[in-house]
Computed example of a mutant assay.
Amino acid sequence: MESPVADDYLKAIYHHTEWQNDPITPSQLAAVLGLAPSSVTEMVKKLAAQGLVTHRPYGPVSLTAAGQRRAAGVIRRHRLIETWLVREFGYAWDEVHDEAEILEHALSDRLLEGIDARLGRPRFDPHGDAIPDATGSVDREPFVLLSAAAPGHAGRVLRVSDRDPELLRALVERGIDVGHELEVVSKETVRADGVNVELPPGAGESVWLTR
Rank of each mutant, 00 (worst) to 15 (best):
R191M: 13
V32L: 15
H15Y: 10
A12W: 00
V40W: 06
W84Y: 15
V40F: 01
E42K: 15
D133S: 06
L80K: 02
P142A: 14
V61W: 02
E166S: 07
H78F: 12
T135N: 12
T189K: 11
R163H: 14
A36C: 07
I102Q: 05
M43T: 12
H127D: 04
D133N: 15
I13E: 03
G114F: 03
A192P: 04
R191T: 08
G155I: 07
V32F: 07
I115S: 11
G204K: 09
L146Q: 03
G120H: 12
R87G: 00
F89L: 14
D22R: 14
L107W: 04
V32S: 10
H55D: 03
S108P: 02
Y91Q: 05
V207Q: 01
V178N: 07
E205V: 06
A100C: 09
G90A: 09
E205C: 00
P200H: 13
F143W: 14
G128D: 06
T17D: 10
L29V: 10
F124S: 13
A30L: 10
T41H: 14
R121W: 12
A30F: 09
R121G: 01
S206K: 09
Q68V: 04
W19T: 13
Q28H: 04
V184I: 13
G90I: 12
K11H: 10
M43G: 00
H55F: 11
G73A: 11
S38V: 12
L158C: 01
E95F: 00
E205F: 05
Q28E: 15
P132A: 07
A66S: 15
L146C: 08
A31F: 02
A31K: 04
W93R: 15
L119G: 08
P165W: 15
Y9I: 01
V157G: 06
T54Y: 03
G114M: 09
G136L: 02
V207I: 15
I115E: 10
Q28W: 01
D129V: 01
G202T: 04
T210K: 10
A117D: 13
V178A: 12
P57C: 10
R69H: 14
G51Y: 10
R211D: 12
L63R: 02
R79Y: 06
E88I: 01
W208A: 09
D22T: 15
E99P: 04
G202F: 12
L112Y: 10
E95W: 00
Q28V: 03
V197T: 14
A49N: 10
L47C: 13
D162C: 08
G155P: 01
L167S: 08
R110Q: 13
P26L: 10
G51C: 03
S161K: 13
L107G: 02
V53R: 02
T25F: 06
E166I: 05
V197Y: 04
P57L: 07
H180W: 05
E181V: 14
P142N: 07
N196F: 09
R156A: 06
V178Y: 04
I81T: 04
L146F: 07
W19P: 01
G90M: 08
T54F: 02
A30W: 03
S206V: 00
R69F: 06
L52G: 09
W93S: 07
A48E: 14
P57A: 12
L111N: 02
L107E: 00
V197D: 11
K11M: 11
